[in-house]
């Protein structure tokens, strides 16, 4: 039953976004993060979101798949919003009741943190939706390869990621079988308090660990038999090649940063908006 788990939530369609070189996509993610962090005006986020929708359209991934990434944060986001709203006191007081005070600075900060988180998570999820874990690992390895000069174990790290990706489904399946074997021996995994439950997991975790170590040993032998001797002198089946589209993508993302900088310096709409809100509330600046 664990066989159906798809790793890294890759969404298999053919699109420009899927065909981009993984290295390019990693660079794009960095550019995008830069853009998200240099935004100083709330309204410019409207532009970032528009750009996000444009990227989603280019990737042919349904929007609700991209938005699914926000779901795990459904508790975190409101919490972050409220914390920032109530804790940060700067600018003008918008609202005050007993010990609760809302300021313009707090509202701004609260909106920023939520919008930034959403923008970052959807951007990163768009990367994993359009890139298989394998090519992501590959892209990372090549992108970081200059670090080999300072003895950073780039190849080893990538190899570890690959093996982890390969064995996660196998281990999940094995965990399922072990659980069943112990249930059949009357193991009680459900009742009792948290300590009792933790103790009940021992008969499952120990075989899982022991088997994993044995697997690791056998895998090492198999890899040695296949002439594995580290990253030195290795060639690759898949050669990553940059295309024109990669250049275009980088240019578009660089333009995004430029536009963000220009927009918020030319049209500081936020300030007017703040004045407007204050005016509506009957407060003088």
């Amino acid at each position: 039953m664990f066989k159906d788990i798809t790793l890294g939530q890759y969404f298999p369609v053919d699109s420009v976004a899927h065909r981009l070189d993984p290295r390019t996509k990693l660079v794009l993610l960095i550019l995008y993060i830069v853009a998200v962090f240099i935004v100083k005006d709330i309204w410019v986020f409207g532009f970032i979101i528009a750009f996000m929708l444009f990227m989603t359209a280019m990737s042919k991934v349904p929007l609700n798949y991209v938005l699914k990434a926000i779901k795990p944060m459904k508790l975190l986001l409101p919490l972050m919003f409220l914390l920032n709203l109530f804790m940060i006191k700067s600018g003008h007081i918008l609202f005050s009741w007993k010990f609760i005070t809302v300021t313009t600075g707090g509202l701004r900060q609260a909106l920023f943190i939520v919008l930034r988180l959403i923008a970052l998570v959807t951007g990163a999820s768009l990367l994993t939706l359009t890139t298989t874990p394998v090519s992501l690992t590959e892209g990372l390895e090549r992108l970081l390869s200059p670090l080999k000069a300072v003895k950073f174990p780039v190849h080893e790290l990538a190899m570890m990621m690959t093996i982890a990706l390969r064995f996660i489904p196998t281990l999940l399946e094995e965990a399922d079988k072990i659980m069943k074997a112990q249930l059949a021996r009357g193991a009680d995994l459900e009742s009792g308090n948290i300590f009792k439950k933790a103790k009940a997991m021992i008969p499952i975790l120990i075989p899982l660990f022991v088997n994993s170590f044995r697997r690791a040993e056998e895998l090492a032998l198999a890899m040695e038999s296949r002439c594995y001797h580290g990253g030195e002198g290795r060639t690759r089946l898949k050669v990553l090649k940059f295309h024109m589209r990669d250049l275009w993508a980088v240019l578009i993302f660089a333009a995004l940063i430029a536009v963000v900088v220009i927009l918020q310096n030319t049209f500081p709409i936020d300030r007017y908006a703040a004045d407007l809100i204050l005016g509506l509330l009957g407060k003088k600046q």
Binding site: E174, K177, I178, K180, A181, Q182, A184, R185, I202, P203, I204, I206, P207, V210, N211, R214
Partner: peptide
Amino acid sequence: LVGMVFQYPDYQLFD
């Protein structure tokens, strides 16, 4: 009433 022995003993030995 039903005892079940799985294919590989490695799935059940732990103690």
